[in-house]
């Protein structure tokens, strides 16, 4: 069945994402020695096909860094980094983009952003989340997002996505940090906040 979320539940999820991505932005800023802008996150629950569109232009070539989550909250953390963003990040870290080292640097950024985001989320909800090692791929945004959604949404038909946008001040560098809980996973985030579970 399709879970439905109330506005209050989506607001609460957005606030969780806001605090968690604030922590992640601080870690990124420390790692790169640059100021990081954080936009107000979005939380959306959409049919599968619309969720891909909401994530961006499906034909844009981006770098995707995925961390699979296990523990109290199953799901996937996905970073989508624009091509210019990948080049900027690699240059700030002193490695060449589109090389094995460059790829591993992007994976490391995924690790650090993911770890700090999840630590903040964990301290707010009491949930334990264990991220896998990062998987890095460069391809069409649509292919990356659809593959991740097939995994997290599975037989459900609503995709829940918490989308935080991090930008490096003064650089052409856009990073989307997406948390995609598995079907039913949002209940685990909402329950500790005293909000009723999503209606099945």
């Amino acid at each position: 069945m399709t879970p439905r979320y109330t506005d209050m539940q989506l607001d609460a999820l957005r606030e969780l994402a806001n605090i968690a991505s604030g922590t992640a932005a601080t870690s990124l800023s420390q790692m790169l020695g640059r100021e990081v802008d954080l936009k107000v996150p979005k939380a959306f629950a959409l049919p599968l096909a619309d969720a891909v569109e909401a994530a961006g232009d499906p034909e844009e070539i981006v770098s995707g860094v995925a961390l699979q989550l296990e523990g109290d909250l199953a799901g996937i953390v996905l970073l989508l980094i624009s091509a210019s963003g990948a080049a900027t990040l690699c240059s700030l870290l002193g490695v060449e983009v589109d090389t094995e080292v460059g790829e591993s640097a992007l994976g490391e950024i995924g690790n650090i952003l993911g770890a700090s985001y999840l630590a903040a989320l964990s301290s707010m909800t009491g949930l334990t989340m264990l991220p896998s090692t990062p998987m890095v791929v460069s391809d069409m945004l649509g292919s990356i997002v659809a593959t991740v959604l097939a995994e997290t949404v599975g037989h459900g038909d609503t995709a829940l996505v918490l989308d935080s946008q991090l930008d490096i001040t003064g650089e052409p560098c856009e990073i989307s940090f997406l948390l995609l809980p598995n079907a039913g996973g949002a209940n685990g985030l909402l329950a500790p906040l005293g909000l009723a579970e999503a209606a099945a």
């Binding site: 891909v52 034909e59 649509g142 990356i144 997002v145």
Partner: peptide, 23 residues
């Protein structure tokens, strides 16, 4: 994702952009 379309009109384009694990 999950859509299905059929056409019998020559020149129509039916496209699925960005297939990853999907077929």
């Amino acid at each position: 994702m999950g859509e299905l379309a059929v056409s019998g009109r020559a020149g129509d384009e039916i496209v699925a952009i960005g297939l990853g694990s999907c077929i």
